[in-house]
């Protein structure tokens, strides 16, 4: 019985190394508003391949610094760009919305990264941004920071009070 229980410990998360994303489906299907000219179109229901995946979230965390997201969003707390740790999402919090925000760019400074970052890595960034906002599963932990000051993993951090200076101009 105990042995059977111990065997459960062998189960570990699958790491997706190969590119399993389908960028065009998600990129083209996302609009910023429900209002549109002409008849209704079928929206993409493509699901992010990297939801609730600790490895993807950790890779996203690495890319968040490497691609200089931190330059404006400052490790999620906001600065030049809006904070990503609260539940106020200007352009939507679904994985597809965040993917579209990164690929298409947004007004007031968010550049478009289409063709600059491969789709797979954008999905990983998306997974991390959602972890910053506390939208990933409870068990999803990122790799810890390299500095000495201990901080709770992004997903589990207190989401209460992000950087207060940014007021989005709507």
């Amino acid at each position: 019985m105990l042995f059977a229980l111990a065997l459960l410990g062998c189960k570990r998360e699958q790491r997706q190394f190969s590119d399993v994303s389908r960028p065009t489906a998600a990129d083209n299907g996302i609009t910023m508003s429900e209002l549109q000219p002409g008849p209704a179109v079928i929206h993409s229901n493509f699901q992010s391949p990297y939801e609730d995946n600790a490895f993807a979230v950790s890779e996203g965390k690495r890319l968040f610094d490497q691609m200089n997201c931190s330059g404006c969003h400052s490790h999620g707390g906001g600065g030049i760009g809006p904070p990503l740790t609260d539940d106020d999402w200007i352009y939507g919090s679904d994985p597809q919305n965040i993917f579209a925000t990164i690929t298409q760019g947004r007004p007031n400074g968010m550049p478009s990264f289409r063709g600059r970052i491969p789709a797979q890595q954008i999905w990983e960034l998306t997974a991390y941004v959602r972890a910053l906002g506390g939208l990933q599963g409870k068990a999803i932990r990122t790799t810890r920071d390299d500095h000495m000051m201990y901080k709770e993993s992004e997903q589990a951090r207190d989401k209460g009070h992000p950087w207060p200076t940014f007021v989005p101009s709507k």
């Binding site: 790491r15 190394f17 190969s18 590119d19 960028p23 690495r62 491969p118 789709a119 797979q120």
Partner: peptide, 16 residues
């Protein structure tokens, strides 16, 4: 094209 089949886990992403 496919660094992940040659060296799975490498930080180089697949490129379309």
């Amino acid at each position: 094209l496919a660094p992940q089949t040659i060296k799975p886990g490498a930080k180089m992403p697949a490129n379309r």
